[in-house]
């Protein structure tokens, strides 16, 4: 019996790095020199992009609808905050612990999330996030409640770069972590594991028939997404040296979903671009008119759902296709 090895070259080609991607990653370097005064906004953007990436892994690739992804972001943020507050201020250690804590909770809750339909998933993820929010809100002696966690003291990154007043270290640190984790995510979604996730999203019933353990795969990706969100939360704590209660809040989960959909889910760059568009728009529109920017946000969301379901990335792809033909 001989089995011919399947031809993997199309998949390999799809997974190869392309020129536009390399150009994209020059943007953060350019931004550093072009907007030296907005470094803190740019760091926030990198952190939120990482958070959006984590949602993209579970929503865009595996199709798990979550309205409570802020739970893991908040866990990572508080974990890193406590660690630094009680003397272990090494940033990389903080990231690792943030990821670990979020991953453990993600692993446990994945068994709740995998039950039931989309609606049940929405409600359970939401419920878990709200429980954590209430817990953090009420345990004021540990978390500071609505006042936030103060006294976060960070050490130097790899013992060399201290966090400075201008946010230079914070910026390169956030971008660096984002880039490393992006490369990892890129590797994951192009691996056989990533392909099986897409298969599950497209047809849950058929995947077991070709030998893919659906629940195991979903648990794995949910845990991974939670760990990513935990790292993003830890990054936010470390770069701002403060944990505010709203890391766990419902609007954070909801806005995250908007960013992802705005950029186009199921494409890693969609998460990054959606976050950039969203945060730049937020920055300028709320400067113009702080109260009513939500209106435009809502309007854009309705339009995206009705007319541009694949977000900015989808539109760009369509235009490229139209240009070629």
């Amino acid at each position: 019996m001989s089995t011919t090895a399947p031809d993997l070259s199309p998949l390999r080609r799809a997974a190869a790095w392309k020129t536009p991607e390399l150009i994209f990653w020059l943007l953060p370097i350019a931004a550093y020199f072009l907007f030296p005064k907005s470094l803190s906004l740019l760091s926030q953007m990198a952190i939120t992009a990482l958070f959006a990436l984590s949602l993209d892994l579970i929503l865009g690739y595996a199709g798990i609808v979550s309205l409570g992804h802020a739970a893991f972001f908040g866990l990572g943020a508080y974990a890193a905050g406590f660690l630094a507050k009680y003397g272990y201020g090494d940033p990389l250690l903080g990231l690792a612990v943030g990821a670990l804590v979020a991953a453990i909770v993600g692993y446990i809750t994945s068994f709740l999330v995998l039950r039931g339909s989309d609606l049940t998933r929405l409600m359970v993820t939401l419920g878990v996030a709200m429980m954590l929010y209430e817990a953090a809100n009420k345990l004021t002696e540990f978390t500071g409640g609505v006042d936030g966690l103060q006294g976060v003291e960070m050490h130097q990154v790899i013992g060399l770069f201290g966090f400075d007043l201008y946010g230079k270290t914070a910026y390169w640190y956030s971008i660096g972590v984002l880039f490393v984790l992006f490369c990892l995510a890129r590797r994951v979604v192009n691996s056989p594991f990533g392909l099986s996730l897409r298969g599950i999203k497209q047809n849950v019933r058929r995947m077991p028939a070709i030998g893919a353990p659906v629940n195991g795969r979903l648990t794995a990706v949910y845990t991974l997404g939670a760990a990513y969100a935990g790292i993003a939360g830890a990054l936010l704590t470390q770069t701002t040296q403060f944990v505010s209660l709203d890391v766990l809040s419902f609007p954070r989960s909801a806005e995250l979903m908007l960013m992802l959909v705005l950029g186009g889910s199921g494409r890693l760059y969609g998460a990054l671009i959606g976050t950039m568009v969203f945060m730049v728009a937020h920055h300028y529109l709320s400067d113009l008119n702080p109260q009513y920017w939500q209106f435009w946000l809502g309007a854009v969301l309705v339009l995206v759902v009705l007319f541009a379901r694949d977000g900015v990335m989808g539109l760009a792809q369509k235009m490229i296709k139209a240009g070629k033909s």
């Binding site: 989309d118 929405l122 979903m257 946000l297 309705v302 995206v304």
Partner: peptide
């Protein structure tokens, strides 16, 4: 449409209603 689309759409409506 999928539930996700409906969720996003109605959150959009919500945001507009709040601002209005």
């Amino acid at each position: 449409a999928s539930h996700l689309d409906q969720v996003l759409f109605s959150i959009g409506i919500n945001f507009m209603a709040i601002s209005a």
